[in-house]
Computed example of a mutant assay.
Amino acid sequence: MRLDKFVCKSTTLNRQQAVLVISAGEVTVNGNAIVDAAVQVHESNCIEFQGERLLPRPFRYILLNKPKSTLCSNVDGDYPSIFNLLNVPNPDELHIAGRLDADTTGLVLITDDGRWSFNVFNPKYHCQKVYRVRLRDSIEGEHKGEIDGQLVARFKQGLQLPGETKLTLPAKLVYVSEREALLTISEGRYHQVKRMFAAVGNRVVGLHRERVGSIECDVACGEWRYLSDIEVEGFGFSSLSELDNRR
């Protein structure tokens, strides 16, 4: 973690104020004054400010059910930011893991633990994401007469998306109704779900993320909650202490 971020997470100082006190030599790391705010530090280091050791606040892990016409951004834009839905201290310390488009709803993870969010959406860990997809046309595949089973097989084998050299990783397609399906993927390419269905001659008209890993979107639209320790640990780490050791 950068020293200025550590100071912010351990005090009431904002990033600009933290940089100023560090530049002035008021922060020491293991007894040595450090004036470079970008220096990487670890929680095991003895970091002091004004003679007192700094202890960072615990990391926060939040699940939010994103409404339509909101932005996965820390600030408002063409639509309001989802951060307007949160009532938590120091929201500027948080970032969004696994962003959704403005017209997409469902599960969004918000945290101040950069290593955790990186691992959750790192393709090498193959974290599965489940989307409920509403389609313009009935599910019949690219060519008229292609049976449902053939389309399931194509998603499982991987699809060739325009402008990309590699097939998509195997995906699981389950029919819910004539124009609705559940799609499970383990990667997060740009507009991937929409592009996958476009590649087989269909169009997504509604998209909702229901699950990430073992975490279900179990709150009402626009509501949020903190993740449990078990949910946080569920992304390939045997314990929170092990997760801490990886930082």
Rank of each mutant, 00 (worst) to 15 (best):
M1P: 12
D4N: 15
V7N: 10
V7C: 10
V7F: 07
K9S: 11
R15D: 09
Q16I: 13
L20M: 13
I22M: 12
A24Y: 02
A24P: 05
E26L: 13
E26D: 14
V27D: 14
V27A: 13
V27K: 14
T28M: 12
T28K: 15
T28S: 15
N30V: 13
N32P: 03
A33V: 12
A33D: 06
D36R: 15
A38I: 06
V39M: 15
Q40Y: 12
V41H: 10
V41L: 05
H42Y: 15
H42V: 14
N45G: 11
I47A: 14
E48Y: 03
Q50A: 12
G51V: 04
G51Q: 11
R53C: 12
P58T: 07
R60A: 11
N65A: 07
N65L: 10
T70V: 04
C72Y: 01
V75R: 13
D76I: 10
G77S: 12
Y79T: 00
P80K: 06
S81P: 03
I82Q: 02
N84Y: 01
L85H: 05
N87S: 14
P89A: 08
N90F: 10
N90G: 03
D92I: 07
D92R: 09
A97S: 13
A102E: 01
D103E: 11
G106E: 01
V108P: 00
V108M: 02
D113C: 11
D113V: 08
G114F: 06
F118H: 15
N122Q: 10
P123K: 11
Y125E: 05
C127N: 13
Q128N: 13
Y131I: 00
R132A: 03
V133E: 04
V133C: 08
L135V: 14
L135W: 08
R136K: 15
D137K: 15
D137S: 15
D137P: 03
S138L: 04
I139K: 00
I139M: 10
E140Y: 04
E142S: 11
E146I: 00
G149M: 04
L151M: 12
V152L: 02
K156N: 06
Q157F: 05
G158W: 00
Q160H: 08
P162F: 02
P162G: 08
P162I: 05
G163R: 05
E164T: 10
E164I: 03
K166D: 09
L167T: 07
P170C: 05
L173K: 01
S177Y: 04
R179E: 11
R179C: 10
E180H: 04
E180M: 11
A181S: 09
S186T: 12
E187W: 00
E187D: 03
V193P: 00
V193R: 02
M196I: 08
F197P: 01
V200G: 02
V200W: 00
R203K: 15
R209S: 06
E210P: 02
E210C: 09
G213E: 12
S214Q: 10
I215F: 06
C217L: 06
C217S: 12
A220Y: 05
G222F: 01
D229M: 05
I230M: 08
E231F: 09
G234S: 15
F235P: 00
F235N: 03
G236K: 07
S238G: 13
L240S: 08
S241L: 13
R247S: 14
R247E: 13
